[in-house]
Amino acid sequence: MVKYGVVVFPGSNCDRDCFWAAHDMMGQKAEFIWHESKSIDKYDVIIIPGGFSYGDYLRAGAIARFARVMDNIHTFAGKRNKLVFGICNGFQILLESQLLPGAMLTNKTLKFICKYTNLQVENNSTPFTSECSREQILRIPIAHQEGNYYCDEKTLNSLVKNDQVVFRYCDEKGNIDDSTNPNGSLYNIAGICNKRRNVLGMMPHPERAMTERLGSTDGAFIFRSITEYVKKSL
């Protein structure tokens, strides 16, 4: 069985949802990891969940980056076959920790936005998207105030060149333009990975799209991809 570890910072609030998605929905092993924890090597996948770590005071993710567990996640991410998955606030923390390039600005609307969005899968050869087809459209909700991805031009060019842009906001037909961009993200970016493809950050919440009753099962594509990838590498 795949071992998921879900990090809990003071202020994390999607930790239990991510646990549910991995444990109850995917039927895998899952445990919570306290933010002061040192031993995380036993896990195959570390999820940094959404929420408001340290109240998002100062800047979203800025303080969580200094938690003890983050040093260990840096080392963890450098190892073979280990995956780090940041969702929403988790993505913000990965950016602040420089595990992924760029930064988050306040949404162009200046408001918190919670709603379903459509994402186009730009790269399906990552451990997080292998069960998706290329250009598949996933219906997954967002819920954030600082999800307006920004990086300088050089970084963007390199992200595109290296196929690190994994998800982009689109409409239900796959059109990508300003009108399908909910928060002002550069290049409609909803999720990116590192060059090695084992660290992924995304603003939308796949753990909220796991059953028909909740309105979509598209989040399961991502959790299934992760699970299958780890199983193969075990």
């Binding site: 100062l58 800047r59 800025a62 303080i63 200094f66 950016l95 602040e96 390039p101 760029g102 930064a103 600005l105 920004y150 990086c151 300088d152």
Partner: peptide
Amino acid sequence: DKLLANPNI
């Protein structure tokens, strides 16, 4: 550099 400002933005 470390905490109060994010040098990216």
